[in-house]
Protein backbone atom coordinates (compact mmCIF):
# COMPACT_ATOMS: atom_id res chain seq x y z
CA UNK A 1 0.00 0.00 0.00
CA UNK A 2 1.37 3.44 0.57
CA UNK A 3 4.71 2.13 1.67
CA UNK A 4 5.07 0.73 -1.79
CA UNK A 5 5.39 4.22 -3.18
CA UNK A 6 7.08 3.96 -6.53
CA UNK A 7 10.73 4.66 -6.54
CA UNK A 8 12.53 7.17 -8.72
CA UNK A 9 13.01 5.76 -12.13
CA UNK A 10 15.69 7.51 -14.10
CA UNK A 11 13.75 6.91 -17.21
CA UNK A 12 16.54 7.47 -19.59
CA UNK A 13 19.62 8.89 -18.07
CA UNK A 14 21.41 8.80 -21.39
CA UNK A 15 19.50 11.71 -22.76
CA UNK A 16 21.65 14.76 -22.15
CA UNK A 17 20.13 16.56 -19.22
CA UNK A 18 19.91 20.32 -19.41
CA UNK A 19 21.22 22.00 -16.31
CA UNK A 20 18.19 22.42 -14.17
CA UNK A 21 17.84 22.28 -10.40
CA UNK A 22 16.85 25.14 -8.19
CA UNK A 23 16.70 28.42 -10.01
CA UNK A 24 16.55 31.73 -8.24
CA UNK A 25 13.32 32.97 -9.75
CA UNK A 26 10.29 31.42 -11.31
CA UNK A 27 11.52 32.05 -14.78
CA UNK A 28 9.17 30.64 -17.36
CA UNK A 29 12.03 29.10 -19.35
CA UNK A 30 12.76 25.91 -17.40
CA UNK A 31 9.05 25.21 -16.91
CA UNK A 32 8.31 25.64 -20.56
CA UNK A 33 11.21 23.33 -21.39
CA UNK A 34 9.86 20.83 -18.95
CA UNK A 35 6.43 20.96 -20.50
CA UNK A 36 7.78 20.30 -23.96
CA UNK A 37 9.95 17.47 -22.65
CA UNK A 38 6.87 16.06 -20.95
CA UNK A 39 4.89 16.06 -24.16
CA UNK A 40 7.72 14.39 -26.03
CA UNK A 41 7.84 11.52 -23.52
CA UNK A 42 5.81 8.52 -24.61
CA UNK A 43 5.35 7.42 -21.01
CA UNK A 44 3.90 10.72 -19.94
CA UNK A 45 1.61 10.88 -22.94
CA UNK A 46 0.27 7.42 -22.21
CA UNK A 47 -0.36 8.56 -18.66
CA UNK A 48 -2.06 11.73 -19.82
CA UNK A 49 -4.26 9.75 -22.19
CA UNK A 50 -5.42 7.39 -19.43
CA UNK A 51 -6.06 10.30 -17.11
CA UNK A 52 -8.00 12.14 -19.81
CA UNK A 53 -10.19 9.06 -20.13
CA UNK A 54 -10.64 8.99 -16.37
CA UNK A 55 -11.51 12.66 -16.27
CA UNK A 56 -14.04 12.27 -19.06
CA UNK A 57 -15.66 9.38 -17.24
CA UNK A 58 -15.71 11.35 -14.02
CA UNK A 59 -17.14 14.54 -15.53
CA UNK A 60 -19.69 13.03 -17.86
CA UNK A 61 -20.65 9.82 -16.06
CA UNK A 62 -24.26 11.00 -15.86
CA UNK A 63 -24.45 11.32 -19.63
CA UNK A 64 -22.26 8.39 -20.61
CA UNK A 65 -23.60 5.74 -18.26
CA UNK A 66 -26.45 3.77 -19.81
CA UNK A 67 -27.99 3.03 -16.39
CA UNK A 68 -28.24 4.60 -12.97
CA UNK A 69 -25.38 3.17 -10.90
CA UNK A 70 -27.47 2.76 -7.75
CA UNK A 71 -31.14 2.76 -8.51
CA UNK A 72 -31.32 0.55 -11.58
CA UNK A 73 -31.16 -2.63 -9.53
CA UNK A 74 -33.03 -5.78 -10.41
CA UNK A 75 -32.73 -8.88 -8.27
CA UNK A 76 -34.16 -11.01 -11.04
CA UNK A 77 -31.37 -9.97 -13.38
CA UNK A 78 -28.37 -10.39 -11.10
CA UNK A 79 -24.86 -11.67 -11.88
CA UNK A 80 -25.48 -11.68 -15.63
CA UNK A 81 -22.40 -12.06 -17.85
CA UNK A 82 -21.39 -9.25 -20.23
CA UNK A 83 -23.90 -8.76 -23.04
CA UNK A 84 -25.05 -6.15 -25.52
CA UNK A 85 -27.38 -4.78 -22.91
CA UNK A 86 -24.87 -4.76 -20.07
CA UNK A 87 -21.41 -4.41 -21.57
CA UNK A 88 -19.60 -5.53 -18.46
CA UNK A 89 -22.39 -7.62 -16.96
CA UNK A 90 -24.42 -7.05 -13.81
CA UNK A 91 -23.50 -7.34 -10.13
CA UNK A 92 -25.16 -9.09 -7.19
CA UNK A 93 -27.92 -6.48 -7.05
CA UNK A 94 -28.50 -6.68 -10.80
CA UNK A 95 -26.89 -3.28 -11.41
CA UNK A 96 -24.97 -2.44 -14.56
CA UNK A 97 -21.25 -2.78 -13.86
CA UNK A 98 -20.19 -0.49 -16.71
CA UNK A 99 -22.29 2.37 -15.35
CA UNK A 100 -20.95 1.80 -11.87
CA UNK A 101 -17.36 1.89 -13.07
CA UNK A 102 -17.95 5.19 -14.87
CA UNK A 103 -19.41 6.72 -11.75
CA UNK A 104 -16.63 5.17 -9.70
CA UNK A 105 -14.12 7.27 -11.66
CA UNK A 106 -15.55 10.36 -10.02
CA UNK A 107 -15.17 8.85 -6.57
CA UNK A 108 -11.61 7.76 -7.29
CA UNK A 109 -10.58 11.22 -8.45
CA UNK A 110 -12.14 12.70 -5.33
CA UNK A 111 -10.23 10.25 -3.16
CA UNK A 112 -6.96 11.09 -4.87
CA UNK A 113 -7.38 14.83 -4.67
CA UNK A 114 -8.74 15.06 -1.12
CA UNK A 115 -6.36 12.67 0.56
CA UNK A 116 -3.26 13.88 -1.25
CA UNK A 117 -4.42 17.44 -0.58
CA UNK A 118 -4.29 16.67 3.12
CA UNK A 119 -0.82 15.08 2.96
CA UNK A 120 0.42 17.84 0.70
CA UNK A 121 -0.68 20.77 2.83
CA UNK A 122 0.24 19.33 6.22
CA UNK A 123 3.39 17.59 5.01
CA UNK A 124 4.68 20.63 3.18
CA UNK A 125 4.02 22.85 6.16
CA UNK A 126 5.77 20.51 8.58
CA UNK A 127 8.69 19.84 6.26
CA UNK A 128 9.17 23.50 5.39
CA UNK A 129 9.09 24.68 8.98
CA UNK A 130 11.34 21.85 10.04
CA UNK A 131 13.90 22.48 7.32
CA UNK A 132 13.83 26.25 7.54
CA UNK A 133 14.09 26.74 11.27
CA UNK A 134 16.19 23.67 12.06
CA UNK A 135 17.33 23.10 15.65
CA UNK A 136 14.82 21.94 18.22
CA UNK A 137 11.84 22.53 15.95
CA UNK A 138 13.42 20.28 13.37
CA UNK A 139 14.30 17.67 15.96
CA UNK A 140 10.78 17.51 17.41
CA UNK A 141 9.01 17.44 14.07
CA UNK A 142 11.31 14.83 12.63
CA UNK A 143 10.95 12.57 15.66
CA UNK A 144 7.17 12.83 15.30
CA UNK A 145 7.56 11.88 11.67
CA UNK A 146 9.77 8.94 12.71
CA UNK A 147 7.02 7.75 15.01
CA UNK A 148 4.45 7.98 12.25
CA UNK A 149 6.79 6.09 9.94
CA UNK A 150 7.44 3.32 12.47
CA UNK A 151 3.75 2.53 12.25
CA UNK A 152 2.92 0.13 9.46
CA UNK A 153 0.93 2.51 7.32
CA UNK A 154 -2.00 0.24 6.57
CA UNK A 155 -2.46 -0.47 10.28
CA UNK A 156 -2.34 3.24 11.03
CA UNK A 157 -4.94 3.92 8.36
CA UNK A 158 -7.15 1.13 9.68
CA UNK A 159 -6.89 2.47 13.22
CA UNK A 160 -7.76 6.00 12.13
CA UNK A 161 -10.76 4.79 10.18
CA UNK A 162 -11.83 2.75 13.19
CA UNK A 163 -11.81 5.93 15.28
CA UNK A 164 -13.64 8.08 12.79
CA UNK A 165 -16.05 5.40 11.64
CA UNK A 166 -16.04 3.48 8.37
CA UNK A 167 -16.87 6.02 5.70
CA UNK A 168 -15.27 7.18 2.48
CA UNK A 169 -14.45 10.66 3.79
CA UNK A 170 -12.81 9.18 6.85
CA UNK A 171 -10.80 6.80 4.71
CA UNK A 172 -9.58 9.80 2.72
CA UNK A 173 -8.56 11.56 5.93
CA UNK A 174 -6.73 8.46 7.17
CA UNK A 175 -4.85 8.05 3.90
CA UNK A 176 -4.06 11.75 3.94
CA UNK A 177 -2.55 11.49 7.42
CA UNK A 178 -0.55 8.40 6.53
CA UNK A 179 0.95 10.25 3.57
CA UNK A 180 2.18 13.24 5.57
CA UNK A 181 5.69 11.93 6.40
CA UNK A 182 6.68 11.46 2.76
CA UNK A 183 5.86 15.03 1.86
CA UNK A 184 7.43 16.36 5.02
CA UNK A 185 10.71 14.58 4.27
CA UNK A 186 10.88 15.62 0.63
CA UNK A 187 10.07 19.22 1.36
CA UNK A 188 12.48 19.35 4.27
CA UNK A 189 15.42 18.17 2.22
CA UNK A 190 14.56 20.52 -0.66
CA UNK A 191 14.25 23.43 1.74
CA UNK A 192 17.58 22.55 3.32
CA UNK A 193 19.21 22.71 -0.09
CA UNK A 194 17.53 25.90 -1.24
CA UNK A 195 17.87 27.89 1.96
CA UNK A 196 21.66 28.07 1.64
CA UNK A 197 21.41 29.78 -1.74
CA UNK A 198 22.43 33.36 -2.30
CA UNK A 199 19.06 34.72 -3.24
CA UNK A 200 17.73 33.67 0.15
CA UNK A 201 20.49 35.58 1.86
CA UNK A 202 19.65 38.53 -0.34
CA UNK A 203 16.01 38.43 0.67
CA UNK A 204 17.00 38.22 4.28
CA UNK A 205 19.34 41.17 3.85
CA UNK A 206 16.54 43.38 2.62
CA UNK A 207 14.62 42.48 5.78
CA UNK A 208 12.03 39.99 4.52
CA UNK A 209 10.18 38.09 7.25
CA UNK A 210 10.71 34.36 7.78
CA UNK A 211 7.23 33.59 6.48
CA UNK A 212 7.82 35.66 3.37
CA UNK A 213 11.17 34.08 2.68
CA UNK A 214 9.77 30.61 3.20
CA UNK A 215 6.62 30.99 1.16
CA UNK A 216 7.67 33.46 -1.50
CA UNK A 217 11.26 32.49 -2.09
CA UNK A 218 12.05 29.00 -0.87
CA UNK A 219 8.94 26.90 -1.47
CA UNK A 220 8.41 27.98 -5.08
CA UNK A 221 11.85 26.59 -5.76
CA UNK A 222 10.91 23.22 -4.26
CA UNK A 223 7.93 22.82 -6.55
CA UNK A 224 9.41 20.23 -8.87
CA UNK A 225 9.85 17.39 -6.38
CA UNK A 226 6.53 18.27 -4.71
CA UNK A 227 4.73 18.08 -8.03
CA UNK A 228 6.21 14.69 -8.84
CA UNK A 229 5.43 13.33 -5.41
CA UNK A 230 1.86 14.64 -5.60
CA UNK A 231 1.18 12.87 -8.87
CA UNK A 232 2.61 9.57 -7.65
CA UNK A 233 0.80 9.90 -4.31
CA UNK A 234 -2.58 10.28 -5.97
CA UNK A 235 -2.14 6.86 -7.54
CA UNK A 236 -1.09 5.34 -4.24
CA UNK A 237 -3.99 7.00 -2.43
CA UNK A 238 -6.49 5.51 -4.85
CA UNK A 239 -4.90 2.10 -4.36
CA UNK A 240 -4.99 2.45 -0.57
CA UNK A 241 -8.57 3.65 -0.52
CA UNK A 242 -9.61 0.69 -2.64
CA UNK A 243 -7.81 -1.59 -0.17
CA UNK A 244 -9.62 -0.02 2.79
CA UNK A 245 -12.96 -0.30 1.00
CA UNK A 246 -12.13 -3.92 0.23
CA UNK A 247 -11.73 -4.51 3.98
CA UNK A 248 -15.08 -2.77 4.56
CA UNK A 249 -13.46 0.34 6.03
CA UNK A 250 -13.94 2.81 3.22
CA UNK A 251 -16.80 3.51 0.86
CA UNK A 252 -20.16 2.18 1.97
CA UNK A 253 -22.85 0.55 -0.14
CA UNK A 254 -24.42 1.39 -2.47
CA UNK A 255 -21.60 3.75 -3.53
CA UNK A 256 -20.03 2.59 -6.81
CA UNK A 257 -16.51 2.71 -5.43
CA UNK A 258 -14.17 0.26 -7.15
CA UNK A 259 -12.66 -1.34 -4.04
CA UNK A 260 -16.12 -1.82 -2.58
CA UNK A 261 -17.27 -3.36 -5.84
CA UNK A 262 -14.44 -5.88 -5.50
CA UNK A 263 -15.46 -6.67 -1.93
CA UNK A 264 -19.07 -7.12 -2.91
CA UNK A 265 -18.16 -9.25 -5.89
CA UNK A 266 -15.82 -11.48 -3.93
CA UNK A 267 -18.52 -13.89 -2.77
CA UNK A 268 -19.61 -14.49 -6.36
CA UNK A 269 -16.25 -14.44 -8.10
CA UNK A 270 -16.11 -18.16 -8.70
CA UNK A 271 -19.26 -18.17 -10.76
CA UNK A 272 -19.23 -14.59 -12.02
CA UNK A 273 -15.61 -13.57 -12.43
CA UNK A 274 -16.52 -10.39 -14.36
CA UNK A 275 -17.91 -8.91 -11.15
CA UNK A 276 -14.37 -8.55 -9.81
CA UNK A 277 -12.41 -8.36 -13.06
CA UNK A 278 -13.57 -4.99 -14.33
CA UNK A 279 -13.47 -2.88 -11.16
CA UNK A 280 -9.96 -4.20 -10.50
CA UNK A 281 -8.92 -3.35 -14.01
CA UNK A 282 -10.26 0.17 -13.52
CA UNK A 283 -8.16 0.59 -10.38
CA UNK A 284 -5.08 -0.75 -12.12
CA UNK A 285 -5.47 1.55 -15.13
CA UNK A 286 -6.09 4.65 -13.05
CA UNK A 287 -3.12 4.08 -10.78
CA UNK A 288 -1.01 3.27 -13.81
CA UNK A 289 -2.06 6.57 -15.37
CA UNK A 290 -0.85 8.55 -12.39
CA UNK A 291 2.38 6.58 -12.18
CA UNK A 292 3.11 7.10 -15.86
CA UNK A 293 2.48 10.80 -15.56
CA UNK A 294 4.54 11.01 -12.39
CA UNK A 295 7.47 9.27 -14.07
CA UNK A 296 7.17 11.52 -17.08
CA UNK A 297 7.07 14.60 -14.88
CA UNK A 298 10.12 13.51 -12.99
CA UNK A 299 12.11 13.00 -16.16
CA UNK A 300 10.85 16.24 -17.64
CA UNK A 301 11.55 18.37 -14.59
CA UNK A 302 14.89 16.86 -13.80
CA UNK A 303 16.15 13.58 -15.12
CA UNK A 304 18.74 13.50 -12.36
CA UNK A 305 16.18 14.05 -9.64
CA UNK A 306 16.53 11.56 -6.85
CA UNK A 307 14.60 11.33 -3.67
Amino acid sequence: MSMFAPIPHAHDSRTPAPASGPTPTRASGPWRDAASRLLRSKTACAGLAILALLLTAALFADVLAPYDPVHDADLYNRLQPPSAEHWLGTDAQGRDIFSRILHGARISLEIGLVSVGISLILGTLLGAVSGYFGGTVDLVIMRLIDILLAFPSILLAIAIVAILGPDLINAMIAIGIVGIPQFARIVRSSVLAVKEMEFVDAARAIGASDARILFRHILPNCLAPILVQTTLSIGTAILDAAGLSFLGLGAQPPQPEWGLMLKEGQSAFQTAVWVVTFPGLAILLTVLGFNLLGDGLRDALDPRLKR
Binding site: F4, P6, G235, L239, A242, G243, F246, G259, L262, Q266, F269, Q270, V273, V276, T277, P279, G280, I283, L284, V287, L288, F290, N291, L292, D295
Partner: peptide, 17 residues
Protein backbone atom coordinates in the same frame (compact mmCIF):
# COMPACT_ATOMS: atom_id res chain seq x y z
CA UNK B 1 5.04 -0.01 -14.08
CA UNK B 2 1.94 -2.17 -14.13
CA UNK B 3 3.36 -3.99 -11.13
CA UNK B 4 3.68 -0.87 -8.99
CA UNK B 5 0.14 0.10 -9.92
CA UNK B 6 -1.34 -3.29 -9.01
CA UNK B 7 -4.17 -3.66 -6.53
CA UNK B 8 -2.73 -6.86 -5.10
CA UNK B 9 -5.98 -7.99 -3.47
CA UNK B 10 -7.45 -8.06 -6.94
CA UNK B 11 -4.45 -9.89 -8.34
CA UNK B 12 -4.88 -12.40 -5.51
CA UNK B 13 -8.47 -13.08 -6.48
CA UNK B 14 -7.55 -13.48 -10.13
CA UNK B 15 -4.68 -15.91 -9.57
CA UNK B 16 -6.89 -17.98 -7.27
CA UNK B 17 -9.53 -17.99 -9.97
Amino acid sequence: LIGVSMPIFWLGLLVIW
